[in-house]
Amino acid sequence: MSTPPFGLLLDVDGPIASPVSRTVAVGSIGGDLAAMANAGIPVIFNTGRSDAFIAEQVVPVLRAAGLQSSTPVHTVSEKGAVWAEVTPQGLGEISVDEELRLPVALGEEVRHLVAERFSELMFFDETKRAMVSVEQHVEVASEDYLAAQKEFDAAIGALLEKRGLDEVRIDPTIISTDVEHQRLGKDLGAARSLSLLAEQGIRPQAWYTMGDSRSDYKMADWLHEQGHTVSHVDVRPADGIPETEYPVLVSESGAIHDEAGAEFLSRWAASL
């Protein structure tokens, strides 16, 4: 059994990728992640993003930073429904939990809804395998998108009621809306992550989790409940920091999103 000093369980939008550009900035983030992974630190992206987003936006940054083969890097995408190993060559075999995949017909209805009423503000994410998601166009002002999002979410609620999909929920973020099975979440992603590491004989002595929303606390909650030592980094604390039984860390400089994420990654990499 390998027992690295810590493992990283990371949301992607916000801490790693800018929620404005939807890309990973060229700078220290890729280098620090690759350096820690190459030293045997597990790095797992616990994200609502699709595996395609990880392959297109994250893997090239890690490859350019010198990520080596056979490192403990994984993506657990779509909030626990999809998972794969991350390598310098790309993603390994992609697994999907079929029990959590939404009906194809629902996706078609949402795609049609976006095309008919909301295409100027948002787009249908064609890369999702289990969830149904729409996302704000990068060039659209946030206030315009958020105003339309309320109308869109209400329309989705009507679709779910019509189909009798009681086990499906609507989860809006500042740049998207996810329609997903109610079992999905960052806690499921955390459980999936530890299972992947257990298959490799890896059990970190402690964990750092990182996110930009209240739902990201669920991964730290789950780890704490399972008896793991964990600290959570909130890179957008303006929403308010809830009371927790584990430490919550924020940027000392006041940075948010990926700038705050970069601060902590550099600190952890330097500690090795």
Rank of each mutant, 00 (worst) to 15 (best):
I94F: 09
E120H: 06
K128W: 08
A154M: 02
V114C: 02
E109S: 03
A130S: 11
R129P: 00
V168G: 01
Q149Y: 04
D178P: 00
D171M: 09
E98I: 13
H112Q: 15
R129D: 05
V134L: 03
L106Q: 06
V110G: 00
E93G: 12
E93N: 12
E99P: 15
T177R: 03
V140K: 15
M131L: 13
I94T: 15
R169N: 08
V96S: 08
V134Q: 07
A147Y: 07
A115R: 13
E161N: 12
E167K: 14
L121P: 05
A105S: 10
T173G: 07
G107F: 11
G164I: 04
T173V: 07
E167M: 03
S95K: 04
R183G: 07
R169P: 00
L113F: 09
S119H: 10
S119V: 09
R111L: 09
L91V: 15
E85D: 15
A115C: 08
E120T: 14
R111M: 05
E139Q: 11
R129F: 04
L146F: 09
A148I: 01
I174T: 13
D97I: 15
L159S: 11
E161Y: 10
L113D: 02
V132T: 15
Y145F: 08
V132L: 06
V114A: 07
D166C: 05
L160Y: 00
A84R: 03
G90D: 13
V82I: 14
A148K: 10
V82D: 06
L165N: 12
E151P: 00
E180G: 02
L91H: 12
L184Q: 02
D125T: 09
V134N: 04
F123I: 02
I174W: 11
K150A: 03
S142V: 13
P172I: 01
K162I: 09
L165M: 15
V96R: 07
T87F: 14
I174Y: 08
E167R: 14
V179C: 05
Q89L: 12
R111K: 12
V114M: 09
A148F: 02
L165T: 08
K150N: 10
H137N: 10
V96N: 01
E135I: 14
E126C: 05
L106R: 05
V132I: 12
T127K: 02
S119M: 02
A81F: 12
H181P: 01
A141W: 00
A141M: 03
E161M: 10
L113Q: 06
V82R: 04
L106V: 06
V104W: 07
R117H: 05
E109T: 12
A115E: 07
D97N: 13
D125K: 13
L184Y: 10
I94Y: 12
S119D: 01
K128Y: 04
D166T: 00
E143D: 14
T173C: 05
A130I: 03
S133K: 02
A130T: 11
E98V: 14
S176Q: 01
E109A: 06
I170E: 02
E167P: 03
Q149M: 08
V104G: 10
Y145H: 11
I174S: 11
A81P: 00
I170M: 13
D171C: 07
H112N: 14
E135F: 05
A155V: 13
A141N: 11
L159V: 00
T173K: 09
I94C: 11
S176M: 02
